[in-house]
Amino acid sequence: MDDPLVIAGKSYASRLLVGTGKYRDFGETREAIEASGAQIVTVAIRRVNIGQDADQPNLLDVLPPSRFTILPNTAGCYTAEDAVRTLRLARELLDGHALVKLEVLGDAHTLFPNMPETLAAAKTLVAEGFQVMVYCSDDPIMASMLEDIGCVAVMPLASLIGSGMGILNPWNLQIIRDRAKIPVLVDAGIGTASDAAVAMELGCDAVLMNTAIAAARDPVRMARAMKLAVEGGREAWLAGRMPKKPYRAQPSSPSEGLIGKTS
């Protein structure tokens, strides 16, 4: 595998991680995820509806764990305790699977992370053997603290969850990327393909998104666009962009040999 994404010692060819929420139905979920090329997909953990028909399709039948790396999240948790309980249930649900997405929210309006609770939950989860990928603020100090605790990836937000506002503070993301020795993923806020490409051009290791695909007019087509954008942005990062020269134009064509000149 050329240039794999390595998380907790496991290699992935795709640098796009996708959520499974907000799709019209499981058919569209599956089609969009196939088009995205994602190998890691997030799921939420929720109470079963009592009296639910046992024959109803199950998300994990549509996205079998044998084929995808399932990343259970703690979306909707506002305390470290609830997040830890949710992921213990997820580990049981997924037969001992250790890779998880921790997010502890601060308020329902912004869905900004509550970082003190996030740090506390991360400590407990790492001690219990979980491999923690963690949604966090785009604060380099918080990111270092999470790395020191033993998280396997930090996932700062680009902008508010589900906002589609793109990357609001590329400088912070760059500082986090420059300092971290673990993968840095942009999680939350991506709106369109160029946002994903910019995240990758900043040197981020991968991008995680859900709404940008699911809320597009044509989710399957947007999934493909995101796949190409992440690949393009990664290639550009690896290629090393030309320096910006804001004060001086430089022609691409030779300055010599122009017609009509006399020597």
């Binding site: 799921v43 079963v48 999240n73 249930l89």
Partner: peptide
């Protein structure tokens, strides 16, 4: 008791 399943989420 809490009885849970995996559902779509981001």
């Amino acid at each position: 008791l809490e009885v849970v399943v995996a559902v779509g989420g981001g």
